[in-house]
């Protein structure tokens, strides 16, 4: 499946947001996910399905002032 994640094109076989986070080795409890500009809340990671050409943003807290 073709996905754009944080602006990068990736070819990954992940059917759900939770699978994607696992594949990317990201901790679910510290990231936030946007799927096609809509926030996917943590409790919905398991049930939110992905499809070809979905655009995702995955963010987290970093150093700042």
């Amino acid at each position: 499946m073709k996905l754009t994640i944080n602006g990068e094109k990736k070819e990954l076989n992940c059917n759900k947001v939770s699978d994607l986070l696992n594949a990317l080795n990201l901790e679910k409890n510290i990231v936030a996910v946007e799927l096609n500009k809509n926030i996917v809340h943590r409790e919905n990671f398991e049930k939110t399905k992905l499809k070809d050409n979905d655009k995702l943003e995955i963010v987290k807290a970093v150093g700042g002032g």
Partner: peptide, 19 residues
């Protein structure tokens, strides 16, 4: 303490979390 929100670096998996 303040933090910023940024994209995770997909190519840097070993990076430890600031949190």
């Amino acid at each position: 303490v303040t933090v910023a929100i940024r994209r995770v670096d997909l190519n840097d998996k070993g990076k430890e979390s600031m949190l």
